[in-house]
Write a protein that binds this DNA or RNA. Structure first.
Lengths: 193, 193, 193, 193
DNA sequence: GATGAATGAGCCTTCATTCAT
DNA sequence: TATGAATGAAGGCTCATTCAT
């Protein structure tokens, strides 16, 4: 009597197609077809294309945040926590390249930008997890005394860049290089002794 | 040699509109209109929309590379050269936010990705300039012994991220913070003593 | 005999929605929703949308005819009977504006036109009631010797027009003006002495 | 070098199809096809379907008003003027039944209703021509002292009704019956001696 | 070179109707 | 009887591109 999970099937298919071919490159009918569903069925679960795009993102984000927070060594030193978060993030995206492509696209679209604005102001996303670490780090004079946004860029921006290169095949990340590069990021944000 | 400047007008207009509204958000007719040119005229200078997008990018890239190389303190220490390049880059994009938006979009599109592939293999772009610095830095044991691609991410990826945030208004970069953040990037890539 | 009243609820809801938003402006699902009934249930009682539209009309018509015939002063002079019928009609529609809007729409649609054809030939509707009055009036040389259809237009067409204006708020009809205007119609159809 | 008059062809075709099959019964593609024009061409001249509908109406209205005003015996008695206007109107619509069907539909649609509202308040349409006659008639105590809107209904509403019946084949109007019925309308609005 | 009217494939979305439960 | 998830044909509209002038 299961939901027959048509909704889930649609979201999964949308994720894949959008990630591979871009939001504009995928007609709704293509999603329907690949999900083995009538076009009308999609509109049964989602108001319109935009809403489908948003819902796929939201679900994805939820999963990622959960992944990061899982096993987060909450009361270990700043450094360890930072390395944990960044390494988990890298591994997650390496294992879910479609999700990474999707997020990048989403963040670069009007949807994503307004979403982002909320994230900065409000309490969403993995942004917040790092904010806590960064603030604590600044307070304890472990990290450089820079605005959070800048630490965020140095600590995370480079990794996003790197993950993209990995997925596109420009570099290859393994356990070892992940460790090295996250350490490098740490070097970037940590205060000079 | 004048091309009567219609070509240039079209490219400039395309750059602005695409940067602001995305490749898919701008019909060719809109470009024609804003450039005060007939739609047919665009197709006189550019094979199709894709080619227009590419040519705008190519020209932009040329300008940026020229800007970076200009005054590049070629025979100064690695550190100085790195800081010079990154600072020039940041300032350039802060002063040309439309170009930055354009590039980001381009890099995230099918066009950009194949383009990127060329950059890594071949000898294009600002990538090359940094490659030289990085290779030299590794050889002289000044930089971490990581694949170029990784140094590139740590050194440049974070800045790209940061510039976006600046343009979107999430952080504000001034002379001082630019210096701080480029130093932080340097800390990320430099070898431990 | 109760039909559990779902059928009635559907018809009532359909009348309201169609009158307000037009046949094309109301999806079947909207009717189902507002009638608190499953969409499938509608198709249990009505073959399809068209049939629903027709049945609503038929029931409405029945009520109107009954209203007119009720208290019809059958053996009073032609004039009195005419004034009675027209006044009852006006008042009825003023009190049931949705029914009026529905009828107008219906009459203007393919359904209504074929329906109308029957009315002329056959023995339906309020058309018949007036026909009797008109024929008698002609025979007794009280009314102008015009085809029934023309008397009908002069006697009733104007009122329909007027009721619409009243409902749309372009004129306002009260007891007094109703009397005046029905008298005017009488003047239009009555023979010169 | 003529306009090639694609625009005119589209309007003419739209008029015919809409009149025969209703606004909702005619897809834009059908108009394009019958007008031997690409679908895109319609959107070159008209913003959307609604605007096409409105423009067809506006042009039609202009023609009708011109027809009525043409040869209007401006300084003849009220009665003559009224008879002139009504007769011209009847004849016009009998000769242009599609235009009549179109107007009826239009007037019964949301477009028409708001349009109508303007007509009552403002200075549009044939409504105004009759208003002048009516007002003068009231002032000179030739017509019944009723609100203009009511005289309008009695004088014109009945005719509209009648024309419809004629077009649908329920009655047949010829020179003679047109005269009779317009006289009957005059009887309806004129004051008792 | 320059123009812009014309084209039509293709996209998003709606909604009457069905049918398994 | 009653339900409502599922269907997919069909409609309005966009926009890259062409070509006669």
């Amino acid at each position: 009597m299961k939901d027959s999970d048509k909704r889930g099937k649609i979201m999964q298919t949308a994720l894949e197609l959008f990630a591979e071919q871009g939001f504009h490159g995928v007609p709704m009918t293509m999603i329907a077809q690949k999900a083995s569903v009538a076009i009308g069925t999609i509109y049964l679960y989602f108001t319109n294309k935009e809403s489908l795009i948003n819902e796929v993102f939201l679900e994805m984000e939820k999963t990622i945040i959960a992944t990061i927070q899982d096993e987060l060594p909450t009361n270990r030193p700043i450094r360890e926590r930072f390395l944990h978060v960044t390494r988990v993030l890298i591994k997650y995206f390496i294992n879910h390249p479609l999700q990474f492509r999707y997020m990048e696209q989403y963040m670069n679209s009007p949807f994503g930008i307004s979403r982002r604005r909320d994230a900065v102001v409000g309490k969403y996303s993995n942004y917040e997890i790092l904010s806590v670490i960064f603030e604590e780090g600044i307070t304890h004079q472990i990290l450089k005394d820079l605005p959070i946004g800048m630490l965020y860029s140095v600590g995370i921006g480079s990794l996003m860049f790197l993950i993209r290169d990995h997925i596109l095949g420009f570099v290859t990340l393994d356990e070892n290089s992940i460790n090295q590069v996250t350490e490098a990021c740490w070097d970037g944000i940590k205060r000079y002794r």
